[in-house]
Nucleic acid binder design. Structure first.
Lengths: 359, 359
DNA sequence: TTGTAGGCGTTATCAT
DNA sequence: ATGATAACGCCTACAA
């Protein structure tokens, strides 16, 4: 371990192998057609011998581009997207890509600054998570050689023909949730969501309606709460607030449901808090299921039953999408799975006969 | 917005300003002593006119270094360090630095690979969070011009004289927690921690002991649970497990405490789950306070009272430490604050007279 | 105070 | 199949 490790350059390798720098360069870039059998071998040995590692910076200066990935996310602390960011970072580094992450905090100024910087250094791979109002599409729209993958967004949200997307199969998710409750014996189920401002919210609710019909659920309700901004909200805590408020609405329903499906887990946790506040016990009085399967579900008590967002698979699909192969679909839809914890049980007599519950 | 935006180089600026490239370079590097009044002005205008932005890659190739920051963290999903990562990223980009993040998952192989890559591109600023067994010290130890800041670690954990640290004032934190409980009227308080494998665990417990003494608390207990590995644990869920197990121990204490201080919030949430499982109500039977103030505290119910880790200030101190000013202390210690939620109340008769509690 | 020239390590073009 | 050579955009002696 030297104090100032002297760089091994392509020329050093060339000298050691008795070939020219260009040949080593060709070797590094896998242009084997332009190399003789013997030269290839000697270069290979010299590289191993000297432990040569090409200087990415020099290459970047020369080519004007880098294989690094720009990752745009509202906030890493966000319970769902945080796990996704981790998975993407791991998948990317497995594929040899560096990742530049930007927490936009939903500020398009921050996002634009970030993209300006990255455009400067030649980044051509973009991943955007939950991009309700991401500007990256507009920004990079003109450039031909840029790959953009949007996670948790509909392609209609952008006007980019080249865009690729990765999404959860929301219909399947709702089918799973309602099916699980139906299996337990529930037939009065409510759905709680906040404003339908994104594709996933719309589609997931639609999925609930379809599922309810499919399982022949007797009665169902949709409770919609509107968003109220928080002063600072790096973790989607406004959804917890929304859930808390929704709990009151659910409790006030003329025919109180025995189970509730929440748009996502944060709303579900809010519901749990709200129900507790008004004396409704989960799950003995009412069952509860969310979507995403954030880690908090496991840490909370009772543990929240949820429909798991397949984070690792989404990351894999995303990185795969970055190097487009034309025979693959531009929109990948992944299947969720059910994680049963403690908030879903069979409806009890107390929850079925609402008189026992009091007003 | 052109399709292939032609780069504005230092030469373009020089031409526009009627000076040479070196002068522009000197301007960019703030070597104003080497510039005439008039030249400086014309360069400034030309830069604004052409919207010139220096090519970081070229500079990097030439100088062999970059001002980007390497950020090493076990996992961004980790409830405490996730918030810290966000704060650091924001503070860094405010200061104009890019951030390369590495989720080591506590694998030194991953960390070493990452540092190798970054050493290649000339990164000389390192931040490491909760580095129980971080190798970065060893790795970069030899290099003179590298700044390393360790957050949530004692300088004794490394053998690097040049290291700078940022830490919470654990003693003050415990003083605050115990003081709060004492103010409420508690005088039988237990402390729950997992194995004392880090500086913060040792120091925080010491702080508890000092505080208990200082407030003249009649009786206190230390409950220590050992770590058990989880198959996969990106979010410190093993601490929740530890808390769950500890709850049983606390319940079995011969003189059951009326309040518990947990080493951190994840353990506290585990305690909450454990208490609920054995029929002990929080806070009416027992009060509970944690440390860190992770977002989950707000989302859980009841909301967990906690000692807040001043994340934004820590980020600021960390970035400040990166450009060492010799008159500042090498070890910064920041003060926490108390966030009262629902898990701490006055001890009730039911919790005070233990007979009412059953066995 | 300002300009000129050389080179950082790589890729790409054009010879051979 | 292989090699010389010229950039990429910037910094930095050193010269003027």
């Amino acid at each position: 371990m030297d104090l100032a490790p002297p760089r091994v350059t392509i020329q050093d390798v060339a000298r050691a192998a008795g070939v020219s720098g260009s040949s080593v360069s060709n070797y590094m870039n896998r242009h084997f057609e332009r190399l003789g059998e013997e030269a290839r071998l000697r270069i290979k040995e010299a590289i191993a011998e000297l432990n040569f590692r090409p200087n990415r910076v020099a290459r970047q200066l020369k080519t004007g581009r880098t294989d690094a990935i720009a990752l745009i996310v509202p906030s890493v602390v966000n319970p769902y997207s945080g796990e996704l960011v981790l998975a993407i970072e791991q998948e990317a580094s497995r594929a040899g890509y560096g990742v530049h992450m930007c927490n936009t905090m939903r500020s398009s100024a921050i996002e634009t600054d970030f993209l300006d910087r990255l455009a400067d250094i030649g980044v051509r791979r973009l991943i955007t998570i939950s991009p309700m109002n991401s500007t990256c599409g507009v920004y990079y729209a003109a450039r031909e050689d840029v790959s953009i993958v949007a996670i948790d967004a509909s392609r209609d949200d952008f006007k980019l023909p080249g865009l690729r997307t990765v999404n959860l199969d929301h219909r399947a998710a709702m089918d799973m949730a309602v099916g699980h409750l139906h299996d337990l014996g529930h037939d009065r189920i409510a759905y709680v969501t906040d404003s339908l401002i994104t594709h996933s919210r719309v589609d997931r609710m639609k999925g609930f309606e379809l599922a309810v019909e499919r399982y022949g659920i007797r009665a169902s309700d949709i409770v919609m709460v509107e968003n109220r901004e928080r002063v600072v909200d790096i973790a989607d805590l406004h959804m917890v607030d929304a859930g808390r408020r929704a709990a009151i609405d659910v409790a006030a329903l003329s025919l109180r449901p025995t189970a509730v499906v929440a748009f996502n887990d944060m709303i579900a946790h809010g519901l749990m808090a709200g129900f507790r506040a008004v004396g409704i016990a989960v799950p003995s009085d009412i069952s509860l299921i969310g979507v995403d399967d954030i880690w908090m579900n496991e840490a909370a008590s009772p543990g929240l039953t949820s429909i798991r967002h397949p984070v690792a698979e989404m990351a894999k699909a995303t990185i795969g999408h970055l190097s487009p192969s034309m025979d693959e679909p531009a929109d990948k839809v992944l299947l969720p799975s059910l994680v049963v914890r403690q908030t879903t049980t069979q409806p009890t007599s107390s929850s079925t006969s609402r008189d026992a519950q009091g007003k």
